[in-house]
């Protein structure tokens, strides 16, 4: 039971990150190539982003408990603190990004909108990829 639960927690954690990175990269590519209705795409992603982020947080803490985290003075601990700090910055920046997406006037020119989407989702993708790298190092050294 416990093993199955921890496997489910780890699976949800990986799937959550796939949603976050895949979605952000998808909106970024759509903005660069002017594919489809980017405003609707961005708003749909934002709904999924916050749901996935909540899942990531709770499964991340679950992973820490299941795997047994070394102390904060170790290299591993310092890396974890760096990762959690980056997550905090990402959350704050993402609140700004989502609220800007919600407040975007539909009469804004497609060029300005595409520039905003490119920057916002490009930066989000980069930050998420940095978190993936940190997670890889934490998991496999």
């Amino acid at each position: 039971m416990s093993q199955s639960l921890h496997l489910a927690i780890r699976t949800l954690h990986v799937l959550g990150m796939a949603v976050l990175v895949g979605g952000a990269a998808g909106v970024w590519i759509a903005a660069r190539r002017s594919i489809g209705d980017r405003t609707d795409l961005a708003r749909s992603y934002e709904w999924a982003f916050w749901a996935a982020l909540g899942v990531m947080l709770v499964t991340g803490i679950g992973n820490l408990g299941a795997l047994g985290a070394p102390g904060p003075a170790t290299d591993w601990g310092q890396l974890l603190l760096a990762k959690l700090s980056l997550v905090t910055v990402l959350v704050l920046a993402s609140m700004v990004r989502t609220l800007a997406v919600v407040r975007t006037d539909e009469t804004v020119s497609p060029t300005r909108l595409a520039t905003f989407h490119e920057r916002a989702y490009g930066l989000t993708t980069l930050a998420l990829l940095a978190l993936v790298v940190l997670a890889e190092v934490l998991a496999h050294g």
Binding site: E46, L53, G54, L57, V91, S94, T98, L99, V102
Partner: peptide
């Protein structure tokens, strides 16, 4: 609703962090 979802989830996540 997306503003509510963003602020509530953001605040919950930041509180736990």
């Amino acid at each position: 609703p997306l503003t509510v979802w963003t602020l509530s989830t953001g605040n919950t996540v930041l509180f736990v962090l």
